[in-house]
């Protein structure tokens, strides 16, 4: 044996019955196997829940991000005041103000259009939630993978930080942090650009949002690290870079994807929850959670009830749709359903 890469052939010397018994179904043309990812995609396409909720999600995204278009078609935006449609105590005229130009009525107070408030509020909510989900998943995956792969004291420190984060009460920290952040960045609860206040909410959600993904990824990486194919790569002379990016990463993207698809509805819920408590993008920017809060303050009349059902129902629809879709993604990626 001199040359490292000297071709070894003469398969004829292998016992023929070995070849025969172990050759699969005699297909001689070039066969392409399906990767686990491709199989998951096929399963997802076959899943009825996934198809329905997937279509619903597309519709929701279209409704939320088509707001400029809807404004042009519909004739009014979420910010326009309609004092002429309110009575002297600022209550909408007629049945909660429903009319041909305001399909879901108008808000008590300044008379903003409810439909546009909902659509624009959905946009606010989805933008914050999706950005949070992407960032939280990325941060969590990187931190978790680092802890899991390196182990030792790095793992211990990261685990300790995660434990601290989990022991902090999310709501109290958010309630305490938001006014301070407002004070520091804007000098008080004044009106401010949508993007800046959106970033603030994103930041608060992110402080806690990465922890779950980090734990998940850490566990996955630890269990993968002990698998024999990692040892096989090491025994062939592979370095850490190859092992992390070529061997481990392709095996953790599935749980990370599931964690992402479940994080979106989670953040929609949390964002609405915070907005209800006035930790949100702030007046006058439309926000689903604040709409619910607004409705709760008007419960003595029909206006409040109607608005509560509509805005609460919208949040419910968003969370349910994304959750069901996330469930379908998880089922499709479940390695147990591999043959």
């Amino acid at each position: 044996m001199t040359g490292m890469i000297e071709p070894i052939t003469d398969p004829g010397s292998i016992e023929p019955e070995v070849v025969v018994t172990e050759t699969v179904d005699g297909k001689q043309q070039s066969v392409h196997g399906r990767s686990p990812g491709q199989m998951a995609w096929i399963r997802l396409k076959r899943d009825r829940t996934a198809r329905v909720t997937g279509a619903l999600i597309l519709g929701i995204l279209l409704a939320a991000y088509g707001v400029p278009l809807w404004t042009a078609i519909y004739g009014t935006d979420a910010y326009a005041h309609n004092p002429d449609l309110l009575d002297r105590s600022s209550v909408p005229l007629g049945f909660v103000g429903v009319s041909g130009s305001h399909w879901l009525g108008i808000l008590q107070g300044n008379g903003e259009d409810v439909l546009m408030q909902l659509l624009t509020g959905m946009r606010t909510s989805l933008t914050i939630s999706i950005i949070c989900a992407i960032l939280a998943t990325a941060i969590g995956a990187i931190i978790g993978a680092t802890a899991g792969f390196l182990g030792g004291w790095v793992d211990a420190v990261i685990n300790w930080i995660i434990d601290v984060m989990l022991s902090l009460p999310f709501l109290i920290v958010a309630l305490a942090a938001f006014p301070i952040m407002q004070e520091v960045f804007f000098g008080g609860p004044s009106e401010r650009p949508l993007i800046l206040s959106g970033l603030m909410v994103t930041g608060i959600l992110l402080i806690f949002g990465w922890v779950g993904t980090a734990r998940l990824t850490r566990g996955q990486v630890i269990s993968l690290r002990e698998r024999e194919f990692i040892e096989a790569a090491r025994a062939s002379g592979a370095g850490n870079w190859h092992i992390i990016f070529k061997q481990i990463l392709p095996n953790v993207w599935a749980p990370i994807l599931v964690s992402f698809s479940m994080a979106v509805p989670g953040f929609v819920g949390f964002q609405a929850y915070l907005a209800f408590l006035n930790i949100g993008v702030g007046h006058p920017h439309p926000d689903l959670g604040r709409l619910v809060n607004f409705a709760v303050g008007k419960m003595q009349g029909l206006n409040g009830w109607f608005l509560l059902v509509i805005s609460g129902g919208t949040i419910f629809l968003l969370v349910l749709t994304f959750n069901l879709f996330g469930d379908a993604v998880r089922d499709a990626l479940n390695p147990k359903s591999n043959r």
């Binding site: 398969p11 292998i14 070995v18 070849v19 172990e22 050759t23 699969v24 297909k27 001689q28 043309q29 070039s30 066969v31 392409h32 196997g33 399906r34 990767s35 686990p36």
Partner: peptide
């Protein structure tokens, strides 16, 4: 003793 056509299988 494997079919070399199985190169692209999983």
């Amino acid at each position: 003793g494997l079919n070399p056509e199985h190169y692209n299988r999983f």
